[in-house]
Structures are given as C-alpha cells and as structure tokens.
Design a protein around this nucleic acid. Structure first.
Lengths: 190, 190
DNA sequence: ATAGTTCTGAACCGATCGGTCCGGAATTTC
DNA sequence: GAAATTCCGGACCGATCGGTTCAGAACTAT
C-alpha cells in the first residue's frame, strides 16, 4: 500500500528533551526544536500534537529516568553511598553538555510557576517522588520514621541546591566539595 | 516653564520588580509590565531604556535589598540565629504574595542560563556575595577558615533548596521543618 | 492668555511566536 | 508500470513579541 517508514520518534523525542533541558520550555522555540529533532514541522505536529504535549512527555520521561537511576544506585550500594552517587550524577568536566544544565524537574518547577502552574506542579510532584525514594532508603538503614522524614526533606533541599549549583555552572570540584561536606554532616546526624 | 510632574519612577520600578519576581523575565511581557507599573509605553522607554535594562536594575536592586536584610539579621543576633532568621525570610501564610515566589536571584540564574548568560551570571554573582556574607559570619563565630568555607557552601545549598521549595509552593510549615532540621544538623557540625 | 516643555495614548513597525495547510516527492503494494 | 498511502518543505495564518514614533493633552512660568 503505502510508505511505512517513519522517522525515529524516540530519537526525535530524546533530542527535544536535551534542548528543553538546556534552554528551558519558553526559550526553546518551535524552530529550535525542529532543527534539533531533525524533523519537519508537519511531522512534528503529526507525531507530538503540540509543543506543550511534547514537553510534558519529555518531563515525564526525564522523571522516569531519574527515578530509575536513583533506584539503581540505591540497590547496588549501601543506602548512603548510593545516595551520594545519585547526588554526583552528571558531574562531568566543566563545559561539557548535560553537566551544567541542572535538573529539568527543578528548572521546570521554577520556570513555569506562575506561568503554567500545571507544568510546574507536575515537575514538583516528580520531585516529591524522588524525596519519597530518599525516605524509603533511609528507613532501610534502620533509622526512625521521624528521622527518615526529616532527613529526606533536608536531602531534597541539598539536592535542589546542588542542581542550582550545576546550572549556575559552578566548577565541578566546587560541587564535589559541597557534596562531600554535605554528606559528612548528614552522616553525623544519622 | 514646563510640566515638571513625573510619575514615580521608584514606585514603577518596584512594581516591575514584583512582576519579574512572580513571573520570571521571559513570561513578563511588556504589556504585563506596563499594566503593573501603571505607566504608558512611551514613559517606559523614556525612563528605563528597554525591558532588559529595567530587569537588570530590578535584579541588582533585589540583590542589594537581600544583602541589606542579611547583614541586618547578622548584626542584631548571634550569627547562627541571624542566619536562621534570614532563611525564614518571606515565610508568610500560603497563598499570599511574595511568600511563594522563591528568590529572584535563584530564579533568574536558572531561567536565563543558556538563554542570556550575562543575566544568569550576574544573578549567580549576587548569590556568591550572599555566600561570602555567610562565610564572614561563620568566621566571626570563631570556627576555622576551612570550616567556614565548607559550611557556607553547604548553607548556600540549603538556601537555594529552600527557595526552590518556596517557589514550588510547599506548605510554609513544611519549609519551617526543613529549616529547623537543617539548622539542627548544621549546628551539630560546628 | 501665551509660550514652552513634558507628558502619554494610540497607531504603527518588523520579527517571531505557535500552529495549520497543501502540493508534490517518496515509497510501498498490486 | 500504476495506484495508494505517507511523508515533508514551504507557504501561510493570526497573535503577540519588544520597540518606535508622533500628535496632542497636560501643566508650569511668564
């Protein structure tokens, strides 16, 4: 019958995610996106609906990958080491790629608050899931439920701060020091 | 000779600052700004040059006020109490005004990274000044220079995380708990 | 009043925004 | 080959963006 070959939707989506991550939702224009995704305008609307729909998909995908990575590190290491590995995720050399784009969830939650609250709150909800994973992991270390709740909230504070540091493009070794000091004092509080 | 009455430039600027704070740079359109500032388009360009110029002015003003407030709390209280008061700044009831707009410096640093790096870095530099004030305050408590540097970096992490929590509109009592727990473990590390 | 100066509402500008549409090229089945 | 189907480049859409211009209202000093 007809031409079956489609462009690679997954690849296009991943490329879009990178652009949204780097530039944010508003500053990533349709033209930018199409160029990055290497597909035509028509294909874009056929495959993804509209810009906001694509972004939502990217946001959820980012959250899913983040949670997967977190659960991965938590399984294969003692909880606190795994946590630390998660915090150090994406600490490359300065100037290369994703390493100074921060966290899409944090970025979006801030950028879209007061602009598109549904997007902001969705990102925020994903962050809450991450915090819940922190808490579950702390509980497994055998500390009290109260302490697990309190400490996971502070860990989330530290994580957010660290992703801000990342997007501010502070030198990786500065960030490493921040992580090291932070975990030293968290460790002492356990 | 001529009509001397000017509109209140300071008032207009302050109103603009509030809008930028709430909505961010990109999402605050000229029309929005003019409506909020209650001045005409022509007066706007005569008095402020352009949107970016006005924003820069607001950003610096916000930083100045923030540093003033911080130095105020640090003078009138024991350093760590003053720090805590600074962290609790702007914790009103939920839903009222500035209390869930986060920090303009953090917001801007994230929003404009990769979009207008000059703006992002200027905000980041202001944040660095805040951290320097932390460090100076810690030194006055008599702790070692090394410890002051490390702890001020972690305090900045916590502050940034807290301002993210604020813009995420987490309940104020949740934020209060975060602050309380954070300072408990920082205190223990001193 | 009049002259002199500063104000501002509104019209206007080109550029870009996100989104739609269509005609022709590409690729398959028959 | 022809017919059927899906692809996509490019033209096009109204809306809005940030920014400019100007005529005339508003106000003061004389």
């Amino acid at each position: 019958m007809a031409r079956p070959v489609e462009f690679d939707r997954t690849l296009a989506r991943d490329r879009a995610l990178l652009l949204f991550w780097r530039r944010g939702y508003q500053a990533a224009s349709l033209s930018d996106l199409l160029a990055a995704m290497e597909i035509s305008r028509s294909s874009f609307y056929a495959a993804f609906g509209d810009k906001r729909g694509l972004f939502l998909e990217c946001l959820d995908l980012f959250a899913e990958r983040t949670l997967n990575f977190l659960n991965g590190t938590l399984e294969t290491s003692p909880p606190l080491d795994g946590l630390k590995r998660f915090f150090e995720m994406g600490l490359g050399r300065m100037g290369d790629g994703e390493s100074h784009w921060g966290c899409l969830l944090v970025n979006t939650s801030l950028e879209m608050a007061g602009v598109d609250d549904a997007l902001s709150q969705r990102a925020s909800a994903h962050l809450a899931q991450v915090q819940a994973a922190f808490e579950a992991s702390l509980l497994k270390t055998g500390c009290s439920p109260q302490k697990a709740a309190d400490l996971s909230a502070v860990l989330m504070l530290l994580l957010e701060g660290l992703r801000v540091s990342s997007r501010r493009a502070l030198p990786p070794e500065t960030q490493r020091n921040q992580i090291h000091t932070a975990f030293r004092i968290v460790d002492a509080a356990l």
